[in-house]
Amino acid sequence: MALAVADARYRRRRWRNWIATALAAAAASIGLTWLVLILLVLVVKGMGGLSLAVFTEMTPPPGYDGGLLNPIVGSLVLTSLAVLLGTPLGILAGTYMAEYGRYAKLTVVVRFINDILLSAPSIVIGLFVYEIMVAQMGHFSALAGAVALAMIVLPVVVRATEDMLLLVPDTLREASSALGLPRWLVIRHVAYRAAKAGIITGILLAIARITGETAPLMFTALNNQFFSWNLNAPIASLPVVIFQFALSPYEDWQQLAWTGALLITFAVLGLSILARVLSAKKVST
């Protein structure tokens, strides 16, 4: 009798386990299928419009042939400028948190606030930059767009720098301090060098993140039909052009939007893979 009860219980447990396993496997296959499906559609639709003209011609008026040259250049300008603005500040802040202020209360607060900034809605950052720059200057500008993107770069770099510097063994620092090297030179010549790969990985991930950011650019850098290097004027960027073209009723614009989306995805995936390869190397040495 007791055996029968135990047997039934055993069977119930196995049954439950089977159901849970099946559900988890189903979740994995459903979830991954959807994501793969999205990428497939993107590649199929985007490839259709991929040609040399995409990289050599300007965005066209509806009904004309054209490419995405000005948004591609605009995105590159905005991204480089954002990295130029955000990275040094991020590295310095991360340096304080891991080196000078490792046990300071300020570090705990900054780390917490930084984590909040890391996932703050990007459209709010766009609003902030609109208020402090666009509204004050009276016009949209590439510079404002770059500042908005820099605010997204900053927390990623702060986090990466702090984490990577904390991984550098203290014995290295102690050894160079024992030789009489002051703290700032220990950091510059020893800690930074040891953490270089990790920090670069962080910067690459930050670039990957801003490559597709649309919301903070829509009312800072706005858009520009024409080619522009002027940092004080609106500038086109891939995400904003994709947004505008995708919502338009013109089929050739929609096609360009798909192609632009494909370019962005390739760029993001390429950067993430590069970052992974870099950090994998760091672990192996």
Partner: peptide, 20 residues
């Protein structure tokens, strides 16, 4: 140099707070 570098990093860390 140490004093300057320390202050610069401290200012950068505070900048994160100021931003939010």
């Amino acid at each position: 140099g140490d004093g300057i570098f320390r202050s610069i990093t401290l200012i950068a860390a505070c900048a994160v707070l100021v931003l939010l």
